[in-house]
Write a protein that binds this DNA or RNA. Structure first.
Ligand code: ZN
Ligand code: ZN
Ligand code: ZN
Ligand code: ZN
Lengths: 137, 137
DNA sequence: ATAATCTCTCTAGTGACTATAGCTTCAAGA
DNA sequence: TCTTGAAGCTATAGTCACTAGAGAGATTAT
């Protein structure tokens, strides 16, 4: 049986975050010691490891909840799990594309200023006037 | 003189957001009509246009506040403005790089599943076991 | 036994908005 | 002028995924 601190060290999830996940019903409330402290078994260790990995990959809590529910039904088809992962991949790609447009614009802006005074600063001018931009953001 | 709705339409910033910016002291409280409604001049239109553009480029409110303060002193050197823009460019690039690592991992995961049942689902397995990943995230 | 560390609950704060409720004001048509 | 409907007002709470802090109690090591 693990204390919350030990579970935290093993998973890399911070102690207050574990308690937050319990509140959000992402993990079920574990057993308690005589003195009311949480005591975790390997089942919870594995579940929290799953959650951590999914969060690190950028999945939202709701998506993770769905995936956890699905993994509790091993005989069901896995199309829903695949769809969740694919949707997240698509969203990630869209986010990358958007950030790349911003990157191009920011590069143009930062390299355009010769470091004179504010009244001639190309950074300030560019922010004041979107017409100087190459792209629609 | 513009009402808040007209200002919203001209800038693309939603009405509640304009009021929020006023609360955050990003824009100063404008004049009021006899009936206590906000009335904006072109000064505020330009300022809000600047803010909108900076937000669209991903700058944080605090950075925008600094840039607005700087642009009020036209004779000062502009190195601080350049630094803010460059810092944001660096942060944007880091974010892109991180998302690209996630994208690669998600692509591997989503293409790895042949759509069988949950107990054989490669999506679920990958989330359970970071050792299957190619990269550290 | 004592000290150091951990854990408990509860509340509030973060960033940048968004939504709702219940009210008042404004502008335009009849 | 009266009326109606849109727009605006304030204040409060909700979003997401945590993070910080206070003040009390539990556990562990010496
Ligand atoms: Zn400059
Ligand atoms: Zn632009
Ligand atoms: Zn699958
Ligand atoms: Zn991984």
């Amino acid at each position: 049986m693990l204390s919350i601190g030990e579970l935290s060290r093993k998973t890399g999830v911070k102690v207050p975050t574990i308690r937050y996940y319990e509140q959000m019903k992402l993990v079920t409330a574990p057993e308690r010691s005589e003195g009311n402290q949480r005591r975790y078994s390997n089942v919870e260790l594995e579940r929290l490891t799953f959650i951590k990995h999914a969060r690190d990959l950028g999945l939202k809590i709701d998506a993770i909840r769905e995936l956890l529910d699905l993994s509790a039904h091993p005989e069901q088809p896995c199309e829903d799990a695949n769809r969740i992962a694919e949707d997240h991949l698509v969203a990630t790609r869209e986010r990358i594309a958007q950030l790349q447009r911003l990157e191009a614009e920011l590069m143009r802006i930062t390299t355009g200023c010769q470091g004179d005074s504010i009244k001639d600063c190309y950074v300030i001018q560019s922010l004041s006037d979107h017409a100087l931009c190459q792209d629609g953001h």
